[in-house]
Nucleic acid binder design. Structure first.
Length: 575
DNA sequence: GCCGTTTTCGGCCCGACTGTTTTCAGTCG
């Protein structure tokens, strides 16, 4: 049983305990432990063998033992007993928007409802509305939630959510009375997938702004509307929340609505220890404690300063050690978009790209980059019109000719996204690979190999002297396809040992090497390269996603190859 | 169930909005 399976069981235990009316803090302990486990950069095996489980935040002796039992014996009597005491369908009911543990419990106890089907029927018969604590509105809301269950529950790619949020933000900033507005939530934290869009605005006339928001064409349905908070469903099912605060409280509110929840809990506890209660409105004197520490009008950095912390960038706010590091003034200086001088993973019409070589180059030049690497697919990727050795060498020659002609100011490197074949060999012979400036080795086929085989296969490719970097490590497509099972830590170690780079693929669907592994990797000395996997001139913009993920993985400028100057890159490739 | 520079017991972040209530519980973030 792996980390994610155990975390899922802990989440389920949390729900089951909630349904039984257990102590909410006990429930939270299971959720915290699940998250802590999932976000740990150590393997489950290492955590167990070296007894390091209790070193993770929120995991004590009891939960460490439960995790160990699940990992080794693949079952947990406590969980099985708990499961037996609750009808199976109930877990599905609690996922319906608006239904929490209390309501689900009441439905079960009073109407014997334990499946979605039974719930639908009861609503249709008007039996829900007659229930104490329920009513006609609740019944209608349940029916609504049931009808849109799939679209409402869906998560969204960061890029898609960001594009929509930017549109709303730009319009909002023009609304009369809006003094400031920012995107908050997981979108601001740069998480790879997003549940809903959070937008914060400052205005002294919140009512008119709320009225404006709820009347927009992009709004499909208003879920709730109050003086400071309005929630809507956008067309397509994405949820957007708008919060409005007075201008003086903007910094506090921005910090709060950016989250993460766990980060907030952490800094609020820290604040309480210092004698102040922190909320989205400001600091308040906790009972019997010292005086309020800051002026009312404060920016985020002021809040962190009062708490004795360095400013923590939004991407790091996941309660994964950033508060402790900020306390010791040991936060890294995160890489920025402007540090990027070019990318290497770019496709053209020669394989499956939408734009020609020259179009891809000139689009990169317009971004102000110093260099661009071209890496079309290799011959085994039939589906992507992969290049034969002859076609590849012809392309290389064309690139060299372009270089000599000085048609472009930007330097062009010729490379290949070369398939790692099922046995770990590369898709081109050595004498072809030697003619290239760089080689990205990627897995595109035989994705169903077992973990051991695929790890060995990737490591064999990494060890090939012609390989510069490893492409999308697991091949995952977020929200579409799970990645292959790879022993990521082993691959990272092999890359470090062989002085090879691991790509951070900024394509919105990929966003890997996953930031949860990045941090430990670069601490051990891993070098990365942030690429976009561009298949058209518009995809160069995905560099922003790549940088997001890099920042979430605590990357500094020096940890990514493509922050280096052209001169340094040429030197690096010659090694 | 976790955790400790006030604590090994007694806390555990804090508030908005809805709907069903006539003062608040439930859900959500």
């Amino acid at each position: 049983m792996d980390k994610s399976e155990i975390a899922a069981i802990f989440e389920e235990i949390a729900i089951l305990l909630e349904l039984q009316g257990a102590n909410p803090f006990r429930v939270r302990a299971y959720r915290n432990a699940a998250r802590s486990l999932l976000n740990s950069d150590k393997s489950l095996k290492e955590l167990i063998q070296e007894g390091k489980l209790t070193e993770l935040a929120g995991i004590g002796d009891d939960l460490a033992e439960k995790i160990t039992t699940l990992a080794l014996k693949k079952r947990l009597p406590f969980y099985e007993k708990l499961k037996k005491s609750t009808p199976k369908g109930i877990l599905k009911l609690i996922q319906i928007q608006g239904l929490g543990p209390k309501k689900v419990k009441a439905l079960y106890e009073k109407l014997k409802i334990q499946t979605v089907e039974q719930l639908k029927k009861a609503c249709a018969a008007g039996r829900i509305a007659r229930l104490k604590g329920f009513g006609a509105r609740t019944e209608k809301n349940i029916l609504d939630a049931l009808a849109h269950r799939e679209t409402y529950q869906k998560r969204h790619l960061w890029w898609d959510a960001w594009e929509r949020a930017e549109e709303i933000l730009e319009a909002l900033k023009k609304v009369k009375g809006v003094k400031r507005a920012e995107i908050a939530g997981s979108l601001r934290r740069g998480l790879e997938t997003i549940g809903d869009i959070d937008i914060l605005a400052a205005s002294s006339n919140p009512k008119s702004v709320m009225d404006w928001f709820s009347r927009q064409d992009f709004v499909d349905k208003v879920l709730s509307k109050g003086p400071t908070k309005t929630s809507v469903k956008l067309e397509g099912g994405m949820q957007a929340d708008l919060r409005i605060v007075p201008e003086d409280e903007f910094g506090f509110a921005l910090c709060y609505f950016t989250g993460s929840k766990e980060h907030n809990i952490k800094i609020r506890s820290l604040s309480l220890k210092k004698g102040w209660s922190l909320s989205e409105y400001g600091f308040e004197k906790a009972k019997g404690k010292g005086p309020s520490p800051v002026k009312k009008k404060a920016e985020e950095k002021d809040i962190y300063e009062v708490l004795g912390l360095s400013y923590i960038p939004p991407e790091m706010r996941e309660n994964l050690g950033e508060v402790e590091a900020a306390e010791k003034r040991k936060l890294p200086t995160l890489i920025q978009l402007k540090d990027i001088r070019g990318t290497f993973h770019n496709h053209t019409t020669a394989s499956d790209g939408k734009n020609t070589l020259k179009e891809m180059i000139s689009a990169a030049e317009r971004l102000g980059w110093e260099y661009i690497g071209i890496s079309d697919h290799s011959k085994s990727s039939f589906q992507a019109n992969g290049l034969s050795a002859e076609r590849l060498l012809a392309q290389t020659e064309e690139i060299q000719k372009l270089e000599r002609s000085k048609e472009f100011k930007i330097h062009i490197f010729s490379g290949s996204e070369c398939d790692i074949l099922a046995d770990g060999k590369l898709d081109f012979p050595d004498d072809v690979l030697e003619k290239l400036d760089f080689v990205i080795a990627s897995v595109h086929t035989s994705l169903s190999q077992d973990e051991k085989t695929i790890t060995k296969r990737i490591i064999r490719a990494i060890e090939h002297p012609a390989v510069t970097m490893l492409g999308h490590i697991t091949g995952r497509l977020l929200l579409k396809r799970e990645g292959t099972k790879v022993d990521v830590e082993k691959v990272i170690d092999a890359c470090i040992a062989n002085k090879k780079i691991i790509e951070i693929n900024g394509n919105p669907y990929r966003m890997e090497l996953d930031w949860r592994y990045l941090r430990a990797g670069v601490q051990k000395g891993l070098l990365t390269c942030i690429n976009t996997d561009a298949h058209s001139i518009h995809h160069h913009a995905f560099i922003r996603c790549g940088v997001n993920i890099a920042r979430k993985g605590w990357l500094e400028k020096k940890n990514a190859l493509n922050t280096r100057t052209l001169k340094e890159i040429i030197k690096y490739f010659k090694k």
